[in-house]
Write a protein that binds this DNA or RNA. Structure first.
Length: 458
RNA sequence: GGCGGCGUGGCCGAGUGGUUUAGGCAAGGGCCUGCAAAGCCUUGUACAGCGGUUCGAUUCCGCUCGCCGCCUCCA
């Protein structure tokens, strides 16, 4: 049974899908006005891992993640780059998907765009106004948070303490500083839509409510995003949905931040690193492993040295899997995974996605498998190795170069070296080994003969 | 000011009232090897400080110090 921490209750709760066998999950996606940074990478990886695990457990996962393609930041950027806002959005959305592909992140099952939902948003706003949950002011339509009795649920604060701490500029047009805009009336701006309230554009908090409910229904299982989205974004989404009498999300899942030098990574500081920079410089799986080795709700330190550490750890996984395959090719049966290890893995993952323990289990299994192969216990080693392959794949860590082809000149050089080595002509064999290394191939001499492996740069 | 979290061995990072105190990387030693690589074995005796509860606390409680996040756009 999968259990997850619910930000709404502060408790770890059992995931009880509304529909048997199907998990409906909405994850707040990016506003596409710039290249994604490693913070985006974390939330994407965390929810990708959750999804892969749920699918491994036999659930069908309906995974919706939006693209916010209308926002003040996009407009600002459009001016700066001298492009249309829609051009900015599609440009950075393209970068977004390219980067996620490098990270081996599964595409959501649906990717709604805010601009495709303007009519639906207006419909929701009108309904909120009709129910007197929202009011029309001179510069827009505002949601009246005082009408929601448990406003502050996700912030874990009372209305009074939220009010006391509010740092929002006073706005004469709002009844409470915490009221948020549903429809922003803007004249003389190029990217606006008609509405009963005047030309303008929707507020950010409305789009996710509309899109989530359109694609997942009035109630769904998981709503996720970064920890900073809990308040006010998710609070405000929830306020709108429950104002319509809907249950909305059952479990709210929020991931922790990326920190560098102990501080939250942000654009205003110099600790800002873009995702393409990070994953482009080395094996993109390194970042995924780093994310896996910390709990998703903890802050996570990321820097170049740690990425290198993870890359080395990845080599351990890869060479273990290569070793498993060599042994698997020598037996006449198809190995089956060791059950105990799969069960232990699931037990950890079921416990609020305890990926640190789950990955530790994989590394422990690698040691065991190697030990078994070392002493000739091939069958037991294969069962464990088979489990390793399965679990590594569940976590999205499977190597990209699994089915590698060896160029014929490399094979030739390798065979020459084997011969030289058999003749104990170590000088020649060492030269050939160097030659192969220059071509990107490593030779390891085992008892049974040389093994050719692609060179992995760290 | 309000709310929440954290301080673990060289680094990252889990976890737990006491049996073997994860895991990764790095470091030392050993085995294997023509050399290497990979692998295996092994060492490090960590839990901010001060009190309290307890037979026993890193783990529970209190206080102190330090750090961080949210309360505004933000993954």
């Amino acid at each position: 049974m999968v259990h997850l921490h619910n930000s709404a209750t502060g408790q770890i709760e059992e995931l009880k899908p509304i529909r048997d066998g199907v998990v409906t999950m909405y994850v707040c996606g990016p506003t596409v006005y710039d290249v994604p940074h490693i913070g985006h990478g974390r939330f994407v990886l965390v929810f990708d891992i959750l999804r892969r695990y749920l699918e491994h457990q036999g659930y069908k996962v309906v995974h919706v993640s939006n693209i916010t393609d209308i926002d003040d930041k996009i407009l600002t950027r459009a001016v700066r780059e001298n492009l249309q806002p829609s051009e900015i959005a599609s440009k950075y959305e393209a970068v977004w998907w390219e980067t996620l592909e490098m990270l081996n992140v599964l595409r959501p099952t649906s990717v709604p765009h805010a601009t495709q939902y303007i009519d639906e948003m207006l419909g929701l706003i009108q309904e909120l106004v009709r129910r007197e949950m929202a009011y029309v002011s001179v510069d827009g339509v505002y949601f009246d948070i005082a009408k929601v009795s448990d406003y502050g649920l996700l912030a874990h604060q009372t209305l009074d303490s939220l009010r006391a701490g509010a740092r929002i500029e006073l706005n004469e047009n709002k009844r409470s500083p915490l009221d948020f805009v549903l429809w922003k009336i803007t004249h003389n701006e190029r990217w606006t839509w008609n509405s009963p309230y005047g030309r303008g554009r929707p507020g950010w908090h409305t789009e996710c409510v509309v899109m989530a409910q359109d694609l997942l229904g009035e109630s769904f299982d998981i709503h996720g995003g970064g920890a900073d989205l809990a308040f006010p974004h998710h609070e405000n989404e929830r306020a709108q949905a429950i104002s319509l009498g809907h249950n909305f999300a059952s479990i709210w899942v929020h991931n922790g931040f990326i920190v560098t030098g102990g501080e939250k990574m942000s654009k205003s500081l110099e600790n800002y690193v873009t995702l393409p920079e990070l994953v482009g410089g080395s094996d993109p799986r390194s970042y995924r492993l780093l994310v896996l080795q910390a709990h998703y709700r903890s802050p996570l330190e990321v820097n170049g040295a740690l990425i290198l550490d993870a890359a080395r750890a990845l080599m351990r996984i890869d060479s273990a899997i290569e070793r498993y395959r060599r042994f698997a090719n020598q037996v006449s049966y198809t190995p089956q995974p060791n059950n105990a290890m799969i069960e232990a893995f699931s037990k950890h993952m079921d416990n609020d996605l305890d990926t640190p323990s789950a990955t530790a289990g994989i590394f422990a299994a690698i040691s065991r498998m190697n030990g078994l192969f070392d002493v000739g216990e091939v069958d037991q080693g294969l069962a464990i190795g088979c489990g390793i392959v399965e679990l590594v794949s569940v976590l999205g860590l499977a190597g990209i170069t699994d089915d590698l082809t060896i160029p014929s000149e490399v094979t030739e050089l390798f065979q020459k070296r084997e011969l030289a080595r058999l003749k104990k002509d170590f000088q020649t064999s060492d030269e050939l080994r160097k030659e192969l290394l220059l071509r990107g191939w490593v030779v390891e001499d085992a008892k049974s003969g040389g093994i050719l492996k692609p060179l992995r740069e760290v």
